[in-house]
């Protein structure tokens, strides 16, 4: 139980961290055009990077079932 909860807490914390990087005033530090990254202005690249971070994280979270065992009811339904 404890390990599962730790996984869950980690996944939640990482999701919120990704959002903080995109939405907190930290964003203002990334609010510039240069340097260009793979042809993208820095701000666009910054957002795409953290978007990719969260998207991949959500995929892993799904694969890990957000840190919980598959319940009987849900396995039956699927």
């Amino acid at each position: 139980m404890k390990n599962r909860n730790n996984t869950r807490i980690f996944l939640f914390a990482a999701s919120i961290f990704g959002l903080i990087m995109m939405e907190s005033p930290l964003l203002l530090a990334a609010n510039r055009v240069e340097p260009f990254i793979f042809g993208f202005p820095f701000l666009v690249a910054w957002i795409l990077f953290w978007w990719a971070f969260c998207t991949i994280l959500f995929f892993i979270a799904h694969k890990m079932n957000w840190g919980k065992p598959k319940s009987k009811q849900e396995s039956d339904a699927s």
Partner: peptide
């Protein structure tokens, strides 16, 4: 561009 974050939220 904030839309990327709102989809995540």
């Amino acid at each position: 561009l904030t839309a990327f974050a709102w989809n995540i939220l």
